[in-house]
C-alpha cells in the first residue's frame, strides 16, 4: 500500500496566535516500508502521523493512499478506512478502561462484524504471539505500562492492518518491553509486508526502521535510509540528531 503525501500544512490556533505545526511537507512511503518520523518535541511528528492516518484534516495538501485522496473523503468513509486498513499504537495506549484486555484486543474485529469464530481464532493467535495469554481476563487498570502497550499493539494488529501507525510506541516502556514490541513490528513488516509509520524521538527505536525522515519546525529536514546494518544505521541517526540540534532534545538510548 503506497502512501503519497503532497504539500500538506496544518496550523493550530487562529490569526495572531496561530502555530504552524506542519508547513508544506511532502513524502512517499512505499508498500511494506517501515518509516520512522523523528524530530524534537513540537516538531510536528504526531500531527503528520495524525493527518496521514486521517485522524486530523490538513489545512491544505493531499494524502493519497493507493491513489485515493484521503482528505476528500467524508468523516464516515475515513473512519471506515481507518477501521478496515489501519492499526494504531499510541504512547498513551488509548485503551478503553471499561473493557478488559480481551475486549480491548478484539474491538477492531467486533467493529468489523467479524465472525465469532474468527475473532476467537485471531485473538488466540495474537496473545500467543505476544506472550500475553495470562492477561486476557484482566482489567486494563491492573496492567503495567509495558503490558498496556503490548495490549495496544495486539489491538492494532489483530485485524492484520495494511498500515500500522505508531506514535511513540516505546515512550512508556522499559527497554525489554520496547525490544519485544519493536521486534514484533519488524517481524510483521517483513512477513506480512505491513506498511509501518512510526513517530519517535528515540534513536534506538528508530533504528528498527528501513527509512527515517527528520522533521524540524514543521518541515522535513533530512532523510536516512537503513543501509542494512542496524548498528551503523543507529550511528547515522545519532549523527543526524546532533546535526539538527546538538542532540540536546533527542533521547539517545543506552540499549544500543
Amino acid at each position: 500500500m503506497q502512501i503519497i503525501v503532497k504539500n500538506i500544512a496544518k496550523d493550530y490556533g487562529k490569526r495572531f496566535n496561530a502555530v504552524h505545526a506542519i508547513k508544506d511537507i511532502g513524502l512517499e512511503v512505499k508498500q511494506g516500508e517501515f518509516l520512522g518520523i523523528m524530530g524534537p518535541s513540537g516538531a510536528g511528528k504526531s500531527t503528520l502521523l495524525n493527518i496521514i492516518s486521517t485522524n486530523e484534516r490538513p489545512d491544505h495538501g493531499q494524502v493519497l493512499i493507493d491513489g485515493i485522496d484521503m482528505t476528500q473523503l467524508h468523516d464516515k468513509e475515513q473512519a471506515k478506512y481507518r477501521r478496515n486498513k489501519m492499526g494504531f499504537i499510541y504512547q498513551s495506549f488509548e485503551l478503553l478502561d471499561s473493557l478488559n484486555v480481551k475486549e480491548n484486543i478484539i474491538l477492531p474485529m467486533a467493529l468489523n462484524h467479524a465472525s465469532k469464530k474468527l475473532i476467537e481464532q485471531n485473538f488466540k493467535h495474537m496473545i500467543k504471539l505476544l506472550n500475553i495469554e495470562s492477561l486476557s481476563k484482566r482489567n486494563v487498570d491492573d496492567l503495567s505500562l509495558g503490558q498496556k502497550q503490548i495490549v495496544a499493539a495486539a489491538r492494532a494488529l489483530i485485524n492484520n492492518p495494511e498500515i500500522l501507525f505508531a506514535d511513540e510506541p516505546t515512550g512508556s516502556l522499559d527497554s525489554k518491553s520496547a525490544t519485544i514490541l519493536l521486534n514484533y513490528m519488524q517481524l510483521i513488516n517483513d512477513k506480512e509486508k505491513t506498511t509501518i509509520l512510526m513517530a519517535t524521538h528515540d534513536a534506538f527505536t528508530a533504528s528498527y526502521c528501513s527509512h527515517v525522515v527528520f522533521i524540524k519546525d514543521g518541515v522535513i529536514f533530512s532523510e536516512i535510509v537503513n543501509p542494512g546494518d542496524r548498528n551503523k544505521f543507529f550511528e547515522q541517526i545519532i549523527n543526524m540528531q546532533r546535526t539538527i540540534g546538538g542532540g540536546s532534545y533527542f533521547n539517545v538510548s543506552e540499549n544500543n
Binding site: D75, A79, E94, L96
Partner: peptide, 11 residues
C-alpha cells in the same frame, strides 16, 4: 479513543 481507532461519528 473509539473515534481514533475507526468508530465513525454516526456510530
Amino acid at each position: 479513543t473509539l473515534n481514533k481507532i475507526g468508530v465513525n461519528k454516526s456510530e
